[in-house]
Every structure is written in C-alpha cells, then in structure tokens.
C-alpha cells in the first residue's frame, strides 16, 4: 500500500468528499428532498465537472445522468400507467404502485452501491442508465 492510498480497513471515509456528496444528493433526491437535492446536485456538477479529479467527475456525471433518466422513467411510466388505464380503474393503481415502488427501490439500491464506491474512492457506472465512465 502506497503512502497516498487510504487504508480501507481503518479509515472511516477514505473516499473524496465531493463524490460522496454527489451520491448522497442522488439518494436524497429519491428519499427526502426530491427536486431540491437534484438542484443542489446540478450546482455541484456545474462547478466541478471540469476541475475535479477523475473519480469525482465520474460520480458527478453518473449521478446527474442517472437522476435525469431514472426520474424520467420513474415519473413518466407511472403517469403513463394512470393516463392509459384511468384513475378509476383499480388495475391502474395495482400496476402503478407496484411499478413505482419497485423501480424507486431499485434506484435507491443503485444509489447505495454508488455511495459505497464513492466512500471507498472508486468509480462506478449505474447499470442501464449510467453513461460510460471517464477513463
């Protein structure tokens, strides 16, 4: 282990703070402050997208794109289910709620994995909705 490399077995938060913040905002957007957390994430991305180290840039880009695509799929498909099925049809509710809860939970689990990679100072690509990583 070189002097620069953090000791993963002993350090609490070995990864870069900005990367951890980006992933935390991705999760906050899903869990406690939808919209607001995304705006904060956008601000963070605009400020640091060109200047930050590679790992941080990857996390910023992944979380912004995954938030946009994930959010569009989460809200778009849910709205489509209700618009096509109608609010008065119980099956719209069955499908709509099951889809929303399952897809939302999937995004949260992706976010947890992303946050872990950020804490450990590693890049991570969101499955299906994340863009290619910067090399």
């Amino acid at each position: 282990m070189s002097a620069q490399e953090p000791d993963l077995l002993k350090e609490q938060m070995p990864g870069p703070r900005l990367a951890i913040l980006a992933e935390a905002l991705f999760l906050a957007n899903l869990l406690i402050a939808p919209g607001l957390a995304f705006l904060a994430l956008l601000v963070l991305w605009r400020r640091h997208r060109d200047s930050a180290p590679l790992v941080v840039r990857n996390h910023l880009q992944q979380t912004v794109i995954a938030s946009i695509y994930g959010g569009a799929m989460l809200v778009g498909v849910s709205v489509a289910i209700f618009l096509l099925g109608g609010f008065d049809d119980p099956w719209s509710w069955v499908l709509g709620i099951l889809y929303f809860v399952s897809f939302h939970a999937t995004l949260v689990i992706f976010g947890v994995v992303g946050l872990n990679h950020a804490i450990l100072g590693r890049s991570w690509q969101y499955p299906f909705i994340g863009p290619d990583l910067y090399e």
């Binding site: 993963l8 077995l9 689990i109 947890v112 946050l115 872990n116 990679h117 804490i119 450990l120």
Partner: peptide, 10 residues
C-alpha cells in the same frame, strides 16, 4: 444496507 455493502467492499 450502506453499512453491509461498505464493509464487504472494503
């Protein structure tokens, strides 16, 4: 969840 993943990834 974060805890379990984090420790295993370390």
């Amino acid at each position: 969840t974060v805890f379990a993943f984090n420790m295993v990834n370390r």
